[in-house]
Nucleic acid binder design. Structure first.
Lengths: 107, 107
DNA sequence: TCATTAAATCAAGATATATTGATATATTTA
DNA sequence: TAAATATATCAATATATCTTGATTTAATGA
């Protein structure tokens, strides 16, 4: 069962779908940008990012204390189709709030 | 969110993955055949079949008191890819126990 | 109509997953 | 080294989903 079910489980949550769509739209973002944009408690966000990463959808690149998450490429066929479906969803996303740009985050 | 998340939710369960794989392998089967094969309580099976049907993976054809479930065709791209993934899984399936063939089910 | 069988539904308890607040880890800068 | 900030993890609770046993619905045939 393993990998496939983990991939499916990663998709099985509204919040994670939104995060995927958001990163697909805006490219790599650090946790604090996502946190500011979604107005979401940090531990919650961190958990969802972990599940998406372990589900094979995201990659992380660290720069100092910042962790930049982005859609992993290339995605395999199943994950690509999933992402394509997500692109077609009529969902409400937050506005991007890129506090980290100023070098000052203090989220 | 609607349809896509419902589709994903349908996939998000070991038992349902096995049922899909089983029906993909053996074609249309009635509930009692599945029940005998999987050794599963009827209400539990019925629930999973409902979720798979509502997730767009299965169709039902009624013949008298029997309800024959089978993989719905054609499947859209996402569901097809999902099924393809399921075909590649290394999972243990029960042996087909087709009691209904004799016209006597008494499951 | 009544009895029988297949399948669906419901309510209660069991299990899994998500959320929260607190704490831990790690990097940068003073 | 110490303080500050970003991120990850943990433990407790809240919420959702699954399982079970009982009941209901529906079709068949006596």
């Amino acid at each position: 069962m393993e990998v496939f079910l983990q991939t499916v489980a990663a998709l099985n949550d509204d919040t994670r779908i939104k995060i995927l769509r958001f990163l697909d739209t805006h490219g790599a973002l650090c946790v604090c940008d996502l946190q500011m944009s979604f107005g979401m408690i940090q531990s919650r966000l961190s958990r969802h990012l972990k599940i998406l990463k372990e589900g094979g959808f995201l990659r992380v690149e660290r720069h100092g204390t910042w962790a930049y998450y982005s859609i992993r490429t290339p995605l395999d066929r199943f994950r690509s189709e999933a992402l394509e479906e997500i692109r077609c969803l009529d969902i409400e996303l937050p506005i991007l709030n890129k506090t980290s740009q100023n070098g000052e985050c203090k989220v």
